[in-house]
């Protein structure tokens, strides 16, 4: 099966590969995996106090489509707010990369990874907020 030019581009020159400090209060981490292919994806976002994504990094072990999907997502999210990023659907990713039907699950993986990263940073922020209010009470 032939990969599209966009998939090849992201696969050969992946953007934003790396790791952010998962213990930082400003970093949200999403880890997901698809049993069908055994792919594992870690996606991290660094979020400002105002809820804007300043940086994003990923590490994916998997096929070209999974690597391209996560690479693309890190590009898509930078500079956006958490609310905007929560709207990203796998269909956007699949369309942008021209993924064939058998590789749609790779884009699902990327959508779920970003959702998990958002949930992680929101949980951290909620915990900080309740600590603060507990301290001031």
């Amino acid at each position: 099966m032939a990969y599209s030019d966009k998939v090849l581009d992201h696969y050969e020159n992946p953007r934003n590969v790396g790791v952010l400090d998962k213990d930082s209060p400003n970093v949200g981490t999403g880890m997901v995996g698809a049993p069908a292919c055994g792919d594992v994806m870690r996606l991290q976002i660094q979020v400002s106090e105002e809820g804007v994504i300043e940086d994003a990094k990923f590490k994916t072990y998997g096929c070209g489509s999974a690597i391209a999907s996560s690479s693309l997502v890190t590009e898509m999210v930078k500079g956006k707010t958490l609310d905007e990023v929560a709207e990203i659907r796998n269909a956007h990713i699949a369309e942008e990369l021209a993924l064939p039907p058998v590789k749609i699950h790779c884009s699902v993986l990327a959508e779920d990874a970003i959702a998990a990263a958002i949930a992680d940073i929101r949980a951290k922020r909620d915990a900080q907020a309740s600590e603060k209010s507990a301290a001031s009470a």
Partner: peptide, 12 residues
């Protein structure tokens, strides 16, 4: 196997 990507974080 294709649609449910939520695994134990420890396992991943």
């Amino acid at each position: 196997e294709e649609t449910d990507t939520h695994m134990s974080p420890m396992f991943l």
